[in-house]
Design a protein around this nucleic acid. Structure first.
Ligand SMILES: [Mn+2]
Ligand SMILES: [Mn+2]
Ligand SMILES: [Zn+2]
Ligand SMILES: [Zn+2]
Lengths: 132, 132
DNA sequence: AAGTAGTTTAGAATGATTTTAAAGTAATTT
DNA sequence: AAATTACTTTAAAATCATTCTAAACTACTT
């Protein structure tokens, strides 16, 4: 099934722009990318698309669930007076952080570190929602 | 020891502004805050300080190691074609992400979820540096 | 007290993202 | 197939966090 059909099936209009983006993204290989990464790629294949459109498109794809947006704690810099190594609970609605002592978490199995690299940090973020 | 002495000992000039910030931050209780949070608090106690100064001050405190800046993956939105639940390696120099399958990580001990909340997500980020 | 280097600040600049509003187009209805 | 309509795209402006600039200021040294 081509991108055009998939878009229609998902309830999105099959615009030229969405088809270009879908054709680039859904080629079978997974990837991490920014809106600008995508725009560069689009320019490389001789096409043009405004950044606003790319953001619109990525957000509708994300809302559809066919891509996801990597979680970033916050758009703004957050500082912490606790300088000990520790992890965080994050209230998803408010962004509020609560400390977790490393002793409260146990990672009994860790993945193999890629060749040529070594681990320089570990962050665990447990996201919370208020009970309904 | 007062803030003035502590700043001097750390090799920073004991400016009026740094003393105000230190007096607010180092009162014994830990906290998470943004530059603007701090500015609001400063305004509340009848003082004035430019945001540029607050950023300067927080960055020098951070570089000293007396506060830390909470890690955020990236300042720009990153999208991922892998919509399955998974974790990430992150190259600290480049920001590049590599997927980690949940089966490669085992959290055998998790902290107690705060009263009235439930867990809505879990993110593990393992930071990497190239071997020297 | 004078000198010097580090610091503060208003305001401009930057970079990512969103908004505006006008023009364009996909899907639907005649 | 043309008309209709709602959704989409886009350039440009706006917004927001953060950094930069350059001039005024001030903490510490001599
Ligand atoms: Mn990128
Ligand atoms: Mn805040
Ligand atoms: Zn913390
Ligand atoms: Zn991923």
């Amino acid at each position: 099934m081509n991108s055009k059909k998939k878009l229609r099936k998902a309830g999105l209009r099959a615009t030229k722009q969405r088809i270009v983006v879908a054709d680039i993204l859904f080629n079978g290989q997974h990837r991490h990318f920014t809106a600008e990464d995508l725009q560069s790629e689009i320019i490389k294949i001789g096409k043009h698309m405004s950044l606003a459109t790319i953001y619109n498109c990525l957000k509708s794809f994300r809302d559809l669930g066919v891509i996801k947006q990597v979680e970033s704690l916050s758009e703004t810099a957050v500082f912490d007076t606790n300088v000990e190594y520790h992890h965080h609970f994050m209230n998803e609605e408010t962004g509020e952080l609560i400390d977790i002592k490393p002793s409260e978490i146990n990672l009994s199995k860790l993945p193999k570190i890629p060749e040529g690299y070594s681990q320089s940090g570990l962050d665990v973020i447990i996201k919370l929602r208020k009970n309904s």
